[in-house]
């Protein structure tokens, strides 16, 4: 049997070695390919949409390279994992950079944490940077990962979901934000599983063995 293929979508926004390395480590038999080629992405069994940096630049590249159309196709057919700005790009719209329209896979806005964020009387710094707990909502990708495990976050904008049923993990940082979103064969996380040690690697392993059934 031919080995399975996982495509990590490259649209020119930074380093994808970490995502590639982590996916390859948890599944040595999978052919993990970093690519921007729509044909290769459409042939893959699993697809990962990463993202770092500013949403304006990410969305501009996504549109310029036709990645939005590829994602729309992938979304109908195979397991898709969004990471960090990859998640934010799946929402309707982001407040960042003066307001940017995104791909609209999930209804909801991406909002700024604010400069006066407080929790239990303690001032919270922005970006939200470091290891925070995720309260899970039952989903196959959490299999074998303890509820409230910590993952590595680094972001100044958070997902404010419209459809509570699509929130598959809750994070707390001054506000209750969507740490994970999911619907059918799409799962997307605000944290960086590729930088989240054992819990993150377990989630990536679950993704690569996921058939896309929620």
């Amino acid at each position: 049997m031919a080995s399975k293929i996982c495509a990590v979508i490259d649209y020119g926004m930074g380093n994808l070695h970490s995502a590639h390395g982590a996916l390859q480590t948890v599944s040595p038999d999978t052919q993990v390919i970093v690519t921007g080629d729509p044909e290769v992405i459409m042939k893959a069994d699993h697809v990962v949409l990463p993202g770092v940096g500013a949403i304006r630049d990410c969305m501009a590249e996504i549109r310029a390279q036709g990645i939005d159309q590829v994602v729309a196709e992938v979304r109908k057919t195979k397991p898709l994992l969004g990471i960090c700005v990859g998640l934010q790009a799946m929402m309707d719209r982001s407040e960042e950079n003066g307001g940017v329209d995104c791909m609209g896979l999930f209804p909801g806005q991406v909002r700024y944490f604010g400069d006066n964020l407080v929790e239990n009387g303690e001032r919270l710094k922005v970006p939200h940077m470091g290891w925070n707990q995720v309260q899970q909502v039952v989903h196959p990708l959490w299999t074998g990962i303890a509820d409230n495990s910590r993952f590595y976050f680094v972001h100044s904008y958070y997902v404010d979901a419209v459809n509570a049923g699509q929130v598959k993990g809750h994070g707390q940082y001054g506000v209750d934000f969507a740490a994970a979103m999911g619907e059918d064969n799409v799962f997307a996380v605000q944290f960086h599983p590729e930088k989240s040690h054992n819990a993150g690697l377990a989630l990536l392993k679950n993704f690569l063995s996921w058939d896309g059934q929620a």
Binding site: H128, G130, N132, F153, Y173
Partner: peptide
């Protein structure tokens, strides 16, 4: 629960 302080 909340954000953990880090050791680097």
């Amino acid at each position: 629960m909340g954000l953990a302080k880090r050791i680097i």
